[in-house]
Every structure is written in structure tokens, then in C-alpha cells.
């Protein structure tokens, strides 16, 4: 087994152990969404109109809550040094950790989205663009989030800082995810929005790899 898959498997195993991130993040996602009908009232028409937005914003927050621990534990117990000393480039280490993060947060959120959509009376037309958008957008959330998580290593109040750094960078992911749904509801072509969401994902790959690796080297310095 290559070092890359070994690392992905370890991080997924860590997150899915009892008390790991995965369950907490999903719990957060489901409970936050369940709050909205209480917050805005159970009017099906209103809920249906904002359902996609609720699911997207909550997916984004769910990605953020679990980011703080993405690199911190490895830095504190010395694992990061060893990860950096492997023959595999540090850039790939970052991507492996992002993939693991997505497998335990983004992927389950994407799979749960239709269920949440039903809870919020989402228009049937909107399911496909919502799920495709999330499938492309949530990996981008993990990647861009990794940049923030690696930059705040060693900072005072790092956890609070991540939100300030990462949320503005999440705006494009959110905009095109939502606009795909809006386009579908208005009967307009969905593909352009999906393509741009894909472009955001493709750009965030090298960005996260380089910026993340740079920030990790800095943190180990």
C-alpha cells in the first residue's frame, strides 16, 4: 500500500473512531438544519425556497468546525515531522489529509443532502443540481479549509481565526453551488454553474497543495 493511501486510511480511521470528528460533524449538520424549521417557521413554501441555501451554508459550517483539528494534532504529537520526512512530497501529504477530511465530512453531507432536502420541502427539480454541486463543492471546501487550518497553526486563538480566513474564500464555492440550484428552479441551463463550480475545485487543488505545504513547513520551523 502506498504512503498516500496509508495516510488517508489512517485519518479516516481516526475520524470514524468513537468520539471522532465524523459523527460530531454529521450531528452538527443534521441538528443545525433541523433548527431552521423552528427558526423561520414550518411554512413549506418558504422552507422550500431557502432549503438549498440552508443545506449549503450548513455544509460550509460543518466543514469549518472540523478544520481546526485537521493538522493540529499531528503537529502537537510530532507526527507532522514524520509526514514531512517521507519520500512523498509534503504537497501530497496535504492532499491526502484533505481527501480524508472530505471522506468523513463532505461526502456524508453530500449523501445526506437529499434527506435534508425532503425535511425542508425542497423542490424536486433542485435535487440533482444540489447534489452535483455539493459533490464538486465540498472537496473544494476541504481544500480551501486546509489552507486556513495550516496557516493558523501556532497562532493564538487559531480556531476563531480559521473562520475569518476561510469563510471569504468559501464565497465562490457557495455562490456557484446555489446558482446551479436557482438556475434549475428557474428552468435555465444548470451546466454553466456546475462547470464553474468544477473550475473552483480544480483551482483549489494546487492552491491548497502549495499554500498548505508552505504553511506546514512554516509551522514545523
Amino acid at each position: 500500500m502506498s504512503a498516500f493511501t496509508a495516510l488517508v486510511r489512517r485519518d479516516v480511521a481516526l475520524a470514524t473512531r468513537r468520539g471522532g470528528e465524523a459523527a460530531l460533524t454529521l450531528g452538527f449538520f443534521v441538528i443545525t438544519i433541523a433548527l431552521f424549521p423552528f427558526g423561520v417557521g414550518p411554512d413549506p413554501e418558504l422552507l422550500g425556497r431557502i432549503a438549498a441555501g440552508i443545506i449549503w451554508v450548513t455544509a460550509l459550517l460543518a466543514a469549518i468546525v472540523s478544520l481546526d483539528r485537521l493538522f493540529r494534532q499531528d503537529l502537537e504529537d510530532g507526527s507532522l515531522d514524520l509526514l514531512a520526512l517521507s519520500p512523498m512530497p509534503l504537497e501530497l501529504v496535504v492532499l491526502a489529509k484533505c481527501l480524508a477530511h472530505w471522506l468523513v465530512t463532505g461526502l456524508p453531507v453530500t449523501l445526506l443532502a437529499p434527506v435534508m432536502g425532503m425535511m425542508l420541502q425542497l423542490d424536486p427539480e433542485a435535487y440533482a443540481p444540489l447534489i452535483i454541486g455539493l459533490a464538486l463543492g465540498t472537496p473544494a471546501l476541504s481544500l480551501v479549509g486546509a489552507i486556513g487550518a495550516s496557516l493558523v497553526l501556532g497562532a493564538r486563538r487559531g480556531g476563531a481565526l480559521i473562520g475569518l480566513l476561510v469563510l471569504p474564500l468559501y464565497i465562490p464555492v457557495l455562490i456557484f453551488g446555489i446558482s446551479a440550484v436557482e438556475a434549475a428552479l428557474a428552468g435555465l441551463p444548470v451546466l454553466p454553474h456546475i462547470l464553474i463550480e468544477g473550475a473552483v475545485l480544480v483551482v483549489s487543488l494546487p492552491l491548497a497543495a502549495f499554500a498548505g505545504a508552505g504553511a506546514l513547513r512554516l509551522a514545523m520551523d
Partner: peptide
């Protein structure tokens, strides 16, 4: 640092690093 994860067993901890390295 010992680079150990307290959640894993002794064998799994070493197993990961053996595979990774």
C-alpha cells in the same frame, strides 16, 4: 513527540508508520 495516536492500539500505531515509511 512520540507521534502516537491514543485512539489506536499499539499495533495499529506502529502498523501505520510501518506502512507509511
Amino acid at each position: 513527540g512520540t507521534a502516537l495516536k491514543p485512539q489506536f492500539s499499539v499495533g495499529d500505531n506502529l502498523g501505520f508508520w510501518s506502512r507509511f515509511e
